[in-house]
């Protein structure tokens, strides 16, 4: 799968990217803010987006809404830190397909992507 990774921390992007690539996926791009995520999505048309929630300039939830407005079939996996259940719920309502919680197990991320692929 061609994946766009969205997270404000370079550290998290690197880690996710390693996990995804080991799992046989291609990272087609990265974004560090919500706004950038929307732009990159339109430009790269990835098959999947991993989305952080709390980011500068536009939150992950806003970004999900924007991306969904642009492409109703967009597949977005929320990747959030602990203690944000309410926000994750909001994201799912906005159109996110699944979520994983940091600190994540690599297998958990890959399983989740596999589930998404089958859907």
């Amino acid at each position: 799968m061609r994946v766009l990774i969205v997270d404000d921390a370079m550290f998290m992007r690197r880690m996710l990217s390693d996990i995804l690539e080991k799992g046989g996926h291609t990272v087609c791009g990265e974004a560090s803010t919500g706004k950038e995520a929307v732009e990159r999505y339109k430009e790269l048309k990835p098959e999947l987006v991993t989305m952080d929630i709390i980011m500068p300039d536009m939150s992950g939830i806003e970004a999900v809404k924007e991306i969904k407005k642009h492409d109703t079939d967009a597949k977005i996996l929320m990747v959030s830190a602990m203690g944000q259940q309410a926000l994750v719920l909001e994201a799912v309502q906005a159109g996110a397909i699944d979520y994983v919680v940091k600190p994540f197990q690599p297998s958990r991320v890959l399983e989740s992507i596999e589930r998404i692929t089958k859907k």
Partner: peptide, 26 residues
């Protein structure tokens, strides 16, 4: 921004297994 940065550090520290730092940021 201060809130966000501590939040980001929390996520990173959790991932690295630095429990104390994660808890503090939280």
């Amino acid at each position: 921004e201060v809130f966000r940065v501590f939040h980001t550090i929390k996520g990173m520290a959790q991932t690295m297994g630095y429990e104390d730092l994660a808890r503090l940021s939280h």
